[in-house]
Design a binder for these strands. Structure first.
Lengths: 178, 178
DNA sequence: TGACAAGATGAGTGGTGACTCATAATTTAG
DNA sequence: CTAAATTATGAGTCACCACTCATCTTGTCA
């Protein structure tokens, strides 16, 4: 499985499995069974395990995808936005996380904060905010990432209402402002 | 099992099981097996299930205990402390949570934020802080509890170093100050 | 102390979920 | 179109875990 599949149906199935996994894990959490992923993809279990020898491998592929999407979004905001881009990004991710459980998994321990910081492009956003003077002096990127991870965790498993979520995120961001 | 056990050894075993469960679940999380709890308690599995017919019952008993301890601590701080008692309590709970996984379980969805607020005595601490003017106007108890839950989650599964944990909590509390 | 009830024991049950593999079905190159 | 290689299938294996129960042990009380 080191090499990418060559046959057309194999490529199609790989994509289907990834899409199904994203849906299933976002909805039911990463404890959902591989069998359910296979069912959702319209494929047999063996096929899932052919493409991803381990459930962890499937998760990893999913995380890579998600990390890239978040990094891309951060890059866009850093490019277009002003000093508030950092806050916009933060709020957006939490809103997204509230409906998609895999984000939390991405931000969890096994990925490592340092790599997260780099991957998410948080440093660039923070630098922009510092230039614009919209962020308190001395705030570091790993703190912001940690706060983001905490907020995502809370929003997901804390059973927060949308209203409470927004108020809480606002309080959180208040702590970053001058 | 509705009535408490009457025999001396049964009472002793019940206490042992609770202590073992606290240790095991704090260390390995609530997914640790009942068998391991029994082993740690020096007791057979059947004995655990005699005292707590369900793993959930065991967890519930543990949560009740923990909630009471936290509430008691909050009460003491509210009594003795000044306007900063809220912040002290917050920081203490996060520090404790960093080494004991069950706190997160307590603060999670199935307990409900409203009951948490009341049970933790967060309202009293918040009122004290308001009187003293150490807290920003408009901050509500459920927001503080939500932030606390988020911080505990992050501290546990985010793999934060002690240093990052303290800095992050400080940022978080900054958002609550005037 | 004797005897009965309350409690303890731990192999066993049922269910679940990750992962395998012999076989069948497709794809594709020649 | 056909053969060889690649991929798909899904029943089966293995391990784990919550929970049960027939049997044995121990505390208690007369």
């Amino acid at each position: 499985m080191a090499d990418p599949p060559s046959r057309a149906d194999a490529i199609r199935n790989r994509a289907r499995i990834l899409a199904a996994a994203a849906e299933v894990f976002d909805t039911h959490g990463t404890s959902a069974s591989t069998e359910e992923v296979a069912r959702t993809a319209g494929v047999a279990v063996g096929t899932v395990f052919r493409h991803f020898p381990t459930k962890a491998d499937l998760l990893t592929a999913l995380m890579k995808d998600l990390r890239e999407r978040l990094a891309a979004r951060a890059a866009v905001l850093a490019e277009e936005g002003d000093g508030t881009a950092l806050f916009t990004f933060f709020a957006e991710v939490v809103e997204y996380a509230a409906g998609a459980r895999t984000v939390v998994h991405l931000l969890a321990a096994d990925i490592g904060v340092d790599r997260q910081v780099a991957a998410l492009g948080m440093e660039v956003l923070l630098a922009r905010a510092e230039e614009a003077g919209t962020v308190r002096a001395g705030v570091r990127a790993d703190e912001v990432t940690a706060l983001l991870a905490a907020a995502c965790h809370g929003a997901l498993s804390g059973g927060w209402t949308p209203d409470l979520r927004r108020r809480t995120v606002a309080r959180l961001l208040d702590g970053l402002r001058p």
